[in-house]
Design a protein around this nucleic acid. Structure first.
Lengths: 132, 132
DNA sequence: ACGCTTGTTGAGAACGGTTGTCAAAGATCG
DNA sequence: CGATCTTTGACAACCGTTCTCAACAAGCGT
């Protein structure tokens, strides 16, 4: 169970660090190959999974169900405002939302509460590009 | 483009009405077969899709990415508190959340904002059953 | 009631993202 | 260096969902 530091894992982390926004496993894989790093797709998935388990990366689901990964600045719980078309991401937190969520859930007798709060939109740049 | 009322579509709507909680397309399909209604899986998917487009049912993604459907009481925008293990659902709305979401997004220059706010937990019954 | 037209159905193939398989490769330690 | 034991990667398998297309049936006009 000792996590070994391999060339591939390092490469995945590096790729994540360079790309500041949410990316799919496949995008990262392509990115790695493009720069000459030979890494298997399955390995990319495994690395991302491990990083997610260790809370080193945030995972979120695109509207079509694909998983997107990102290395976030803050490790504490937070939410995201993501551009639908380019993936550009802004970290946000909503203290009022947290409080609201747990209060509502508790009032209904629910336990082990987890909440999903994500904002999707089109960023200024993409909007400009679309109406070119 | 005229929507025809077929036996299959009626069956899907009926099944949804009986099952008050969020169910997957496959669960609904099984449910229909179990009661003798012969309906193809693809048809169930199509019916659910059409209903979702018409805002007749709410769709949400389970943690594993599967789509879950439910006929909600209110047609207006609202959120859900869903039991992870039995699918039991409580409709909730959070006026404060709505306001917060659009304000935050606008402040970042984002447009076309959409937000996902769902609460997952374990309902009282399932908690009791688990610690039997 | 009876065709006709046209949307709908269903079985199975296809698809796309993700995970499993397993022999070969390589990281770590003594 | 050698032994050990995790990791890798090409490919198959999976699973939910969508597509294909010939057979079918709603709804409409007569």
């Amino acid at each position: 169970m000792a996590a070994r530091m391999t060339r591939q894992r390092t490469a995945v982390v590096e790729a994540l660090d360079e790309l500041a926004d949410f990316r799919s496993a496949q995008q990262l894989h392509e990115n790695l190959r493009a720069r000459g790093e030979s890494v298997g797709l399955a390995t990319v998935y495994r690395a991302l999974q491990a990083l997610a388990d260790a809370s080193e990366v945030d995972v979120l689901r695109a509207e079509d169900g694909e998983s997107l990964y990102r290395r976030c600045a803050r490790r504490e719980h937070h939410h995201h405002l993501v551009c639908r078309s380019c993936g550009r991401t802004v970290e946000i937190d909503g203290p009022t939302v947290e409080a609201w969520a747990s209060k509502v859930a508790a009032a209904q007798g629910f336990d082990d509460i987890e909440h999903t709060v994500e904002l999707w939109g089109t960023c200024a740049d993409c909007r400009a590009a679309a109406s070119k």
